[in-house]
Write a protein that binds this DNA or RNA. Structure first.
Lengths: 212, 212
DNA sequence: ACCTGAACACCGTTCAAGT
DNA sequence: ACCTGAACACCGTTCAAGT
């Protein structure tokens, strides 16, 4: 492989390679050097496709959001509430798919076309039920916040489990997790199990009163 | 300054120095080398106080959460709903205080004593109104998720504004933000203004029906 | 336009050594 | 115990050069 116009690779190939590293080794391991190497390229070759690592990261976010099916959100056959519910659940599913996806989403702006399209679908979903546009925008904002935060807590819990399993070698834990928090301790399992769906339903309950 | 037992510095000093860098230059600029330099120390000196950079980051999260006043949450004089409301608002305020605080919180487990104490106060707040413990735990989870997500969206929006202002030099934007998203466009301002409080009230509306 | 190779200014972390 | 200095294996990014 000598230098020269090869065009053997595309932006999508780079994003795919980056996602594979993200899944296998986590967010911290996603480096332009590593991505380039996995494609058999030199680090600097990446800069022909993306102006910076951050641009690659934003493209990854867009790719992630592009896999969310917006069609289900505008299906007039199903009720308003079910549509928003389905959309929120697939949003969380996409974020939970890849380890470190939330760090990715959190690490920069959410102003790509797919991010805006998602927001648009959410607002339209609320507005279709006769909700004033201002409220529909606020409702969409609330659902986005809830989903993002739930994904962040999920990821934090998983990271906590990993850190705890690192203690098996005898390393002292950072904090003694003695049962000084009985309520948290007693209900950790139940909150994690169906916590997302339950909380989403409460939020939609509260929003429904505004729509009616 | 020669090597030797100096004890001139404490863990708290390191955390403070790290926060100052976080505020001034953002999360990416928080490096153990930079923190050490700002304290007039060699990078390796930090490792006498923290076993790793990640441990320092977790300590920063704990410091951030330690500034949240939990006393207001257990004040029996005010109504249940007002207490949770106040707690959620100060949580958001703390996260909004420092730029990049959410990346910090998102970048690892939330299992420190102050994180657990906050969760405990939230569950107790819901349970005090006669809510079953299982539901109280789920309600606390929902509020934490909503607050964290709202902070993440806030930060993303601010990052988006920064990126947009970088375009002033004539650099081409990553995506054309033509008005292809009329609903989002028309309601961006209104959603951002009082979006947090409004959505929190809807969520509490939905939770209140369970408590009654 | 696409790619290489060398270089610059950084990282986190380890290790031997000094007090 | 606390700190330095040197070293290792990394980073993102720029730049000149080749095809």
């Amino acid at each position: 492989m000598k230098p020269g116009p090869r065009r053997s690779i595309s932006q999508a190939d780079i994003v795919d390679a980056a996602f594979q590293i993200l899944e296998e080794k986590g967010f911290a391991a996603v480096s332009v050097r590593g991505v380039a190497a996995s494609l058999g390229l030199t680090p600097t070759a990446i800069y022909t496709y993306f102006p910076s690592k951050n641009a690659l990261l934003r493209a990854m976010v867009e790719h992630l959001l592009s896999t969310i099916d917006l069609a289900a959100a505008s299906d007039a056959d199903v009720a308003w509430r079910d549509r928003v519910h389905a959309l929120a659940e697939t949003m969380l599913a996409r974020l939970a798919d890849h380890a470190g996806a939330i760090v990715l989403v959190t690490s920069g702006p959410l102003d790509g076309p797919h991010a805006l399209g998602l927001n648009e679908a959410l607002i339209a979903g609320f507005a279709s039920d006769g909700m004033p546009q201002g409220d529909a925008a606020r409702a969409a904002h609330a659902v986005r916040a809830y989903v993002l935060g739930a994904a962040a807590i999920d990821a934090a819990d998983r990271a906590g489990d990993d850190a705890a399993s690192d203690d098996r070698a005898g390393a002292e834990p950072l904090w003694s997790d003695a049962a000084a928090f009985p309520l948290t301790e007693a209900s950790a399992a139940v909150a994690a199990a169906d916590g997302f769906r339950w909380g989403l339903d409460r939020l939609l309950d509260g929003l429904e009163r505004r729509a009616a």
